[in-house]
Each structure stands twice: as C-alpha cells, then as structure tokens.
C-alpha cells in the first residue's frame, strides 16, 4: 500500500488517518537545533470537512489516500441519491446527501460538477462556481432601488432560497455563487 513519509508532507497531499481520508492543509517542520524533529500538520477530514492539528514524529509514515477529483455531469435526483455521468465513458455513479453537501441546492441538470472520489466512491461534490437560476417566487420588486443594499428572500427553480436585492422580480434569472450561496448578479435573457 502506498504511503508517505513526513519528509514528503506538503499541502494538498491526501492521507488516511483513523480510517478517514484527510487533505494536508499546512505542514510545518519543527525541530530544536539539537533535538527530535516533528511535523506540525493541519489536516482537513475530507468526509466531514473538520480541520485538525496533528503532530507527527519526523520519519513516521502515513498511508496514502486514493483520492482524486473528476468531472461528472449531473443527471437527476431520484429523491434519495443524486446521479451523475462521466461524460467520457458514460459511466454513472450516485452521490448521497452527505457527499452532496450544499451542492444539490444549485443543480438543475447537465451541470458539470467536480466530484472527489475516494477509492472510486464520491466523497464530496462541487457544483459549478456560478449557477444561473430562474426565480420562481419572490415579493414584487421595488423599482429603482439599486443602492440601498436591502434584500428579500427569493425561491429559485431548484427550490433553494437566495437573498436578492429588492429590485429583482419573479421570473427573472439570477447568477448565484454556489460557494457562498449568495446572489451575484441579474442575468438578461
């Protein structure tokens, strides 16, 4: 089984600890001039997103995690699982709610998402950074108010709720930043 020595540690390396895959976020080499060396490492659990601080004795080895990012096209949601297809070989896979996180809120169909796979199974799903969505319901717009910064909730076609500026109307199309879930711009049809 592949493994990494602490001397190979660097940001972005994927390791397995206590049965979970982790991404190394930061690696600091700590060594008193005449003493034992350590690697002080910040790692992110790729399943839960939790960040931990860990110390390793330099020279220790950790099992490598077979984690990779691949592009998949979103197909449909069967009520429980989200189904995707690899556009190159048409292979399909399904991601559960835990792997989807918030990504499912922004998907209509056919979007190309980045899926992080661990041993071939979806660990997390990233929706495209911007989702272009039609507003299916919101209170009527306040014409001309483009500066006050006040917002109102709007429901978009995927069912998600987004805070939008007051001038935005039902039936209009908006761009949402899926990383933050925030309104980004109005899109002219």
């Amino acid at each position: 089984m592949a493994s990494y020595s602490t001397s190979e540690f660097r940001a972005g390396l994927k390791i397995i600890m206590d049965g979970d895959p982790y991404n190394i976020v930061e690696n600091e080499f700590v060594k008193p001039g005449k003493g034992q060396a350590f690697n002080r490492v910040k790692i992110r659990n790729l399943r839960t997103g939790k960040i931990l601080d860990r110390n390793f004795k330099s020279g220790d080895t950790m099992e490598a995690a077979d984690v990779s990012d691949m592009e998949f096209q979103y197909l449909y949601n069967d009520g429980e699982m989200w189904h995707f297809m690899n556009p190159e070989n048409y292979e399909q896979l399904a991601a559960d709610k835990a792997a989807m996180g918030d990504a499912g809120k922004w998907l209509k169909g056919e979007e190309v998402c980045i899926i992080t796979l661990w041993n071939g199974r979806p660990l997390s799903v990233q929706a495209p950074v911007f989702a272009t969505l039609k507003i299916t319901h919101c209170e009527p717009g306040v014409r001309g108010d483009t500066v006050s910064g006040a917002t109102k909730p709007a429901t978009v076609e995927t069912g998600a709720t987004v805070q939008v500026p007051l001038f935005v109307n039902e039936g209009e199309i908006i761009k949402v930043d899926t990383r933050t879930g925030k309104y980004s711009a109005r899109v002219k049809e």
């Binding site: 008193p32 003493g35 034992q36 350590f38 860990r54 110390n55 390793f56 004795k57 020279g59 220790d60 080895t61």
Partner: peptide, 14 residues
C-alpha cells in the same frame, strides 16, 4: 503523536 513512542528527551523536545 501516536506513531512511534518518543524517548525521554524526545518528550522534552515536543
């Protein structure tokens, strides 16, 4: 660190 026990001075270094 869980991997590999440290020696007496190693603990002080940590």
């Amino acid at each position: 660190p869980s991997e590999g026990d440290l020696d007496h001075d190693g603990w002080l270094d940590l």
